[in-house]
């Protein structure tokens, strides 16, 4: 068996959706992060797409960015890597909502 085949056996294909599905989120109706796609249109680096650990920034065919706040770790990576003023309006979710890390 090749190394790669063995790895596949050890780690049966896990989609990103499965991975983040292991985390608990209590989603509020109000998006706590708002992305202004018009500002993103002329951004060529798009560091948010690669850096967001929750993979919430998705490039669209027409050159924009599709953003979904629901499975957000509230970590701050996106606004830290973003170099476009005004592209990301960042705040914490309403009290009691958002990511809930597990107790043992």
């Amino acid at each position: 068996m090749t190394l790669e085949a063995r790895d596949r056996e050890r780690w049966p294909a896990m989609t990103f959706e499965d991975l983040i599905g292991s985390t608990e989120f209590d989603v509020h109706d109000r998006p706590h992060i708002v992305v202004d796609g018009t500002v993103c249109r002329d951004c060529s680096t798009r560091d948010c797409v690669v850096a967001c650990p929750a993979k919430l920034f998705v490039p669209t065919a027409d050159g924009g960015i599709l953003f979904n706040y629901e499975q957000c770790f509230e970590c701050g990576t996106c606004y830290l890597v973003c170099n476009r003023e005004g592209a990301i309006s960042w705040s914490y979710p309403e009290g009691g909502f958002g990511v809930v890390f597990r107790r043992s």
């Binding site: 991975l19 292991s22 770790f73 990576t77 830290l80 597990r102």
Partner: peptide, 17 residues
Amino acid sequence: IAPLVEGGEVKEYSAHV
């Protein structure tokens, strides 16, 4: 690393800055 963690089922994925 693989022999130490293999077979472990993901209980939680998390991130922080």
